[in-house]
């Protein structure tokens, strides 16, 4: 199975192809690597476009009059809105697999995000390992992302598991 995929990849991309073991060993050399901090002003319009894309009609995220009557006193962003702030982490090509899949996401919030906040996202590579799944071998890369606000306070912590196969 693996050999067949390797041949396919070599034909398609014509570049060096690593075994899972090689890719894991190379990837693990980069554990602890931190990407650049990326800051973004949170805009009400961006929140609106995000909840429209989800199909979530909760007025807490879009209606200032409504949101003013809640404990928050104004609009907040929905929980997973933080994923719109990219936290770049560019790893060297590990030469393995041909598609990246999202294996999972986790967020812990310390407070909601509001329009006007300036949120900074920064990712760190925390784990690289291999795994066997029903669909073949996988290269697993786990990133942790810290989200801080304009006062330097921690707003949320994210963890994302990327699968390469």
């Amino acid at each position: 199975m693996r050999r067949r995929r390797r041949r396919h990849s070599q034909r398609k991309f014509g570049k060096r192809v690593a075994t899972l073991e090689e890719a894991v060993a190379e990837g693990q050399r980069h554990v602890g690597m931190t990407g650049p901090a990326n800051s973004r002003v949170i805009e009400a319009g961006a929140i609106r476009r995000f909840v429209e894309a989800l199909g979530d009609s909760n007025p807490l995220y879009t209606d200032p009059e409504y949101a003013r009557q809640t404990r928050w006193g104004g609009i907040i962003a929905p929980p997973t809105f933080l994923c719109t702030i990219q936290a770049p982490l560019t790893l060297p090509d590990l030469g393995f697999g041909r598609v990246n899949l999202n294996g999972g996401n986790s967020y812990k919030w310390h407070r909601p995000v509001r329009p006007g906040d300036v949120i900074t996202a920064q990712a760190t590579l925390v784990e690289v390992r291999g795994a066997q799944s029903s669909s073949g071998v996988l290269l697993i890369l786990v990133r942790e992302i810290r989200y801080t606000d304009q006062d330097g306070r921690l707003v949320a912590e994210g963890r994302s598991t990327g699968l390469r196969r």
Partner: peptide
């Protein structure tokens, strides 16, 4: 995947209230 996670957020906040 994050679209599905977003829907989980919608499910929870809608149930629990603002």
């Amino acid at each position: 995947g994050l679209l599905k996670a977003g829907w989980l957020g919608e499910l929870v906040q809608t149930w629990a209230g603002p």
